[in-house]
Design a protein around this nucleic acid. Structure first.
Lengths: 147, 147
DNA sequence: TATTGACCTCAAGTATGCATGAGGTTTTAG
DNA sequence: CTAAAACCTCATGCATACTTGAGGTCAATA
């Protein structure tokens, strides 16, 4: 009624669950106002914000990194130029990831059936360019450790 | 001396830690013989096996799936043709993943700066083709649920 | 033989990204 | 006004992939 959205509204319209919204808020990716009775109310701009978070997640970007990108923005409300900025950064990260996966694939190609796995100089066993070996779980794009 | 390897040997030569080897064994990806004193001893073929596990991990394949692939092999020792088989399957999975990331990137390209994020028909907000939204953590290649 | 380094097991911790449930309050519709 | 639906705050659980530590044993070397 008053132009704000409840958690449930946001959940339905953004396609995430209420618990996810709670989680994002706890992690500082989104914020809410509260009613007298302590219930969350959101500005409509939350929808774009959540959409952006989801897109970044699809690209494999961690919530930590998404958060730090969102924090660099001048305002809470994500403007088109903010979005342009972020999405092009993410595009670059995506590209890197695509590149390293492609390289791995090509190495697989050149090694399939060659038996060289047993040799020291197998490109697949080159420890120089290990991908995604940081921490638990299979990861895509990760923040640099300095954040 | 007796042509078998200790955990430490394997750890150093394969580039993983002892605890990782313990973990892999617990999860059934590798096996060991034991000395009288209950210490692990490995056949040299373990090195190739561990190398393969690592490569698959680089490709983003979960240990569960790697395990199930390894279990399909006729022998404990991975032959070149086994490797050929597995690596081409993984190649295909890698390709799929590369493809979906590429598609996402292209959508990003077409959406950067267009402001369409607020519209219902934005390709980036199309719920049909959400990637990597299964379960916790950012994931790469995942097993199908039937395994 | 004695000591040191390597091993062993098992439990618990770490990080990510939420889901679920308990126990209680607020809103809203009839 | 009252009942039901929606909310709230923790706490705990789940899955992945390991790491770390405690408490104790084994093996190789001086």
């Amino acid at each position: 009624m008053d132009n704000t959205l409840s958690v449930d509204d946001v959940a339905r319209r953004s396609g995430v669950t209420v618990s996810t919204l709670h989680y994002y808020e706890e992690k500082g990716l989104i914020q809410s106002l509260r009613t007298q009775g302590n219930q969350r109310r959101y500005h409509r701009s939350i929808l774009r914000r959540v959409a952006i978070i989801r897109i970044a997640k699809q690209a494999g970007i961690s919530l930590r990194l998404i958060k730090s990108h969102l924090e660099k923005l001048p305002t809470r409300e994500v403007s088109p130029s903010d979005w342009e900025q972020m999405s092009s950064e993410w595009r670059a990260m995506l590209n890197e990831r695509i590149l390293s996966l492609t390289q791995l694939r090509d190495k697989l190609d050149s090694c399939i059936g060659c038996g060289c796995l047993s040799l020291r100089d197998c490109p697949l066993r080159n420890p120089e360019d290990r991908l995604g070996e940081n921490g638990p779980g299979a990861r895509l794009l990760e923040e640099d450790k300095h954040n």
